[in-house]
Every structure is written in structure tokens, then in C-alpha cells.
Write a protein that binds this DNA or RNA. Sequence first.
DNA 1: AGCGTCACCCGGACGC
DNA 2: TGCGTCCGGGTGACGC
Length: 297
Amino acid sequence: MPELPEVETVARELREGSAARGPSVLGRTIARVTVRWPRQIVEPTPREIEPRLHGQQVLTVGRRGKVIVFTLTRDVLLVHLRMSGDLTVVAGDAPPDKHAHTVFHFADGAELRFSDTRKFGKIWVVPDVNAVLAGLGPEPIDDDFTSAVLAERLRAHRRALKPLLLDQSFVAGVGNIYADEALHLAGLHPLRRSDTLTPPEVRGLWKALRQALNDGLRHNGASIDWQYRGGGYQEVLRAYGRAGRACQRPGCTGHIRRIVVGQRSTHFCPVCQRRTGAGKDWVAVAARRSQRMEPSA
DNA sequence: AGCGTCACCCGGACGC
DNA sequence: TGCGTCCGGGTGACGC
């Protein structure tokens, strides 16, 4: 399922062209739009989308969180792939794809197909990205996402780490796979409360999150291959989908367990991802003490 | 505020 | 073989 690394890969390949996704979309002009699953179009209405897009040229392709962002002449086209979505550029006479529910036909005959077997994907055409993306948290792989930024955001909540990492307003682009991988790399329990992490644990989580995402990027968002074409990405994963198998951490004797947290399958090692850090959870103790002394604070 | 639950979908895995 | 059933993924809505 596409998360930040996969979505970034799709955006880059649409921008640069690739064997998997066809030639670049940049510079092409939209002439027509076929809508076969109207509920996919969030804004404007499905019948308004073609006249709205007609004549607009694709200027840039980028990503924000898990959303692909096409800058057009007058508007912005936003595509959320959700679980099964994919975007490809093909010639107009390419074999039909029964899951291509929305097709953007270019004036030069090529077309951009949004293929989405499970029909969870969403499309917006808006004048301003903020209309859709305003609620997203920071980009976790950007330079200004420092461990101090993460520390502050963790302290602002009293939530379990796993659902917090999945919350797109907390940090943008992390999904179930990379959340489990980051927590395993960091040696932190998925149910650990966000405001109890020690400074070294925060730093470790920050490093682990960025490492997990950057590893995914280096594999060209290979979890798409894993999901769709049986590629080898599962060999890269240390926690996700490995229930019952030996923990990969050097020296650890544990086995990966699967639990359900907030309706999501969650994979972790009960040996090296303890509920609390080694020793006393002094941050939680201090927080309780200060609350007793200053109930209003 | 944070948690649980449901709805949205359907390919694939599983049991019989 | 073919049928029925369940699962899971991201997100938003809703209730507590």
C-alpha cells in the first residue's frame, strides 16, 4: 500500500518518465476526462471536472504526505492513491485497464490513467492545495523536521505511538508498514505513550523514522512491488508482516508478535520493544508530579 | 483529546 | 473445481 516512499516514487516517475509508468506527464495538455467511478471525484462534481481541466497544461508533479500534486495552468490536481491506486501514462491505443476508473486524455493522444482496483482513491481539482492539504503534519524526511520538532510534537499528545505515527496531522506520509518498521528500529513499543519518551528515545525514534522512510525511498518505494507484483521487499521489512518469525535485531531472541491497535494490525518484538524504556519511566513520573503540583499547568 | 467503531471496496487467502 | 467467508488497507464520520 502506497505510503510516503511509494507515493514519492510514483510522483518522480511521472515527472521523469520510467519503464514502469511510461513517459513524463510534464508539458502535456488535458483535453478530455473519462470518469467511470464518479465517487472517486471529490471536487468539483464529476460532470464539472472535464470542462474544468480542459486546456490546462501539466506544469509540475510533486508530493505532499501521501498525495500526488499536479500543478496545472490554473488549478491543482490532487490524487490520493489510498491502498490500491496507481498512475501510469500510456498511449491512447494501449490495452484497456478495467480498473482505470478515471482517465485524463491529453491533446497529444497519450493518457494518464488512475487505476484503482479497490476504489478507495480520491481526486480533487482545486485552485489552492491548502483547501485539501492544510491539515497535514510536517514532512518527516525534510531537513527542518529535526528531532527537536518531533520531541515537541510528541509532548503535545498523550497517545500511543502507533496511532500517533499513523495520524497524518501529526506527521505526513507514514502508514502502517513504515510505522511498524520505525518503531521496531527504534526499539519502542507501539503502545508506549508519546509523552513518556526520554530524550534519547525521542532521538532514536526520529532517526528510525527517517531511516525507515529513506530505506523505502532507496528501494524506489518497493512495497508497491511487494504488494502488486510479488517483488522482494518483504526481505527488507523487519517487523511488518513477519508475525511468528525471529526478530532480526542482532542478539535479540524474540519473535515478532501481531496485535491490533486502533483497528490496525501491528507487528512488534516483545523482547526488544518493551512497553517502557530500560529502567524507570521517569518522564511519566515527572509529568504526574508536576500535574499534582500545578493542576492548571 | 483520544479512543473505539463503522463504512467504504474487492482481490486474495482460506476452509470446505 | 467451485463456492462461501473473512481480511486488510487509509481515512472520515460519529459516539462516548
